[in-house]
Amino acid sequence: MTDQLPDERPQRRREYSGPASTLGLAALVIAVVGFALWWFEFRDDPSAGTARSAGGLGVIALPDDLNPTGQPPAAREGRAAPNFRLAALDGGPRSLDEFRGSWVLLNFWASWCGPCRAETPDLQEFHSRNLDRGIAVIGVNQQEDAATARQFTAQFGVTYPILLDTSGAVSQAYRTGVGGLPMTVLVDPQGVIQRIYLGRITWDQLSELEAQLP
Rank of each mutant, 00 (worst) to 15 (best):
M1A: 12
T2D: 12
T2V: 12
D3F: 11
D3W: 08
L5D: 08
L5R: 11
L5K: 11
P6Y: 05
P6V: 01
P6A: 04
E8R: 10
R9A: 14
P10L: 00
P10M: 04
Q11P: 00
E15L: 11
E15G: 11
Y16A: 09
S17E: 14
S17C: 05
S17Q: 15
A20N: 04
S21H: 06
S21T: 10
L23V: 14
G24S: 10
G24D: 02
A26M: 14
A27P: 01
A27L: 13
A27H: 04
A27N: 03
L28R: 00
V29D: 03
V29H: 00
A31M: 08
V32Q: 02
V33M: 13
F35T: 13
F35S: 11
W38Y: 15
W39F: 14
F40E: 14
E41D: 12
F42Q: 10
R43S: 12
D44K: 05
D45Y: 13
D45E: 13
S47D: 14
A48H: 05
A48D: 13
A51I: 08
S53D: 15
G55L: 06
G56Y: 08
L57R: 04
P63L: 10
D65A: 12
N67K: 06
P68C: 10
T69Q: 06
G70W: 05
Q71R: 12
P72Y: 04
P73H: 08
A75Q: 03
E77L: 03
A81T: 05
P82V: 07
P82W: 07
F84L: 09
L86T: 00
A87E: 14
A87C: 00
A88H: 02
L89W: 03
D90W: 06
D90M: 07
G91K: 02
G91Q: 07
G92T: 07
R94I: 11
R94M: 13
E98K: 01
F99S: 03
R100F: 08
G101Y: 09
S102I: 01
S102M: 09
W103C: 06
L105R: 02
L106P: 00
F108A: 00
W109Q: 00
S111R: 04
S111G: 03
S111D: 06
C113S: 07
G114Y: 08
P115I: 02
C116M: 04
R117Y: 04
A118P: 00
E119L: 02
D122F: 10
L123E: 00
E125H: 11
